[in-house]
Design a protein around this nucleic acid. Sequence first.
DNA 1: CGAGATACATACTGGTCGGTATGTTCCTGT
DNA 2: ACAGGAACATACCGACCAGTATGTATCTCG
Lengths: 197, 197
Amino acid sequence: MRPDTTRQVLLNAAFHEIHRKGFQSASLTAILDNAGVTKGALYHYFGSKRELGYAVLEEVVSDHLRTLWLEPLAEATGDPVSQLKGCLIKAGEQLNEKDIRLGCPLNNLAQEMSPIDQGFRERTDVMYKLWLQTISSALQNGQQLGKVRKEVDPGETALFIVATLEGCMSMAKNAQDKAVLLQCGKGVLNYLDSLRT
Amino acid sequence: MRPDTTRQVLLNAAFHEIHRKGFQSASLTAILDNAGVTKGALYHYFGSKRELGYAVLEEVVSDHLRTLWLEPLAEATGDPVSQLKGCLIKAGEQLNEKDIRLGCPLNNLAQEMSPIDQGFRERTDVMYKLWLQTISSALQNGQQLGKVRKEVDPGETALFIVATLEGCMSMAKNAQDKAVLLQCGKGVLNYLDSLRT
DNA sequence: CGAGATACATACTGGTCGGTATGTTCCTGT
DNA sequence: ACAGGAACATACCGACCAGTATGTATCTCG
């Protein structure tokens, strides 16, 4: 097997195991079994379980964030509300029942680890700040182009939007019901429309 | 020590340990040390770690929910928006920095355990449904009394409110910053006002 | 062609975990 | 007074865990 392939296989297996069980309860043995490699390989590429977790955040999870939210919002169409609604709908469509039961990988890790591990907290914090910053900039841009109401505080609104998104995912995860996600998502869509001029 | 006292001490110690570490990573030994009793006492009152966790949810966490949200909303003042804002402000005031770092106990347990343990899921689900139902009824009552806009769908709105609340707590927990909670809470307060006639 | 480095595999270790078996004290009902 | 159960305490168990030490095959470079 090619070296970087093994590393990637390990990262993917780790991502799924962590997504299912959480970081602390994720079993290295289970990750190894799923990846089809042995402990020697793992500790060849990662110094510890924690470093593996950091790498999952920095490489796998941040990729998801980028493709789902950051890149679509970076296109300067000038209508951030439509862009945000598009992201939301697309994200909702591609989530199956299992994904909903497992919840948002970023939120899961942030909730579990931020109070007990500074390294995780710094990394999730960077990602959230990027997310917020991207939405905030898009809203600001929309204001300059007259698409978004001037009274809207971009930073505050971005925070509220991300909070509601994570909240919707949480409620749907606990209810284990996609209908809850859709109903809650409707609330977000209405709120987004209220930002329009 | 009185029998029911020991049980209560165990429940409190378990609640705090679970709040800090999550259920799966909560150490029975740590709980025992904090409670000042031994393993014999614990297994005299609870059949397993899991049953202890269930009891924490049903007795400790549900008490918090009741006193903070359910009972204040049950008073039929006829103005649910003011009631909700009052609950939110009161809840925000009594949270110190440590509470914010640890997050909402109900949400923590729901997020961690609902995908991997049906018993936890059922119990958190009951509590969320109670919460949603109480808010929904209050909104409906407010509509009949002309305090809340008729177009508001009580159930959908209750879901959106709870989602945003949990989302705000999540964002503040990850940021480890009460300012984030307050800023996010402002967004919720604005939204609540938008429900008024 | 050899030497070191890379890329793993296997076997093992100390520690922690939830859970149990057994012992002891005290209290209560008869 | 004494029998039985409630309310613990102590000691121990097997399972699993992250991490390590060591071995080995392949590949690269001089």
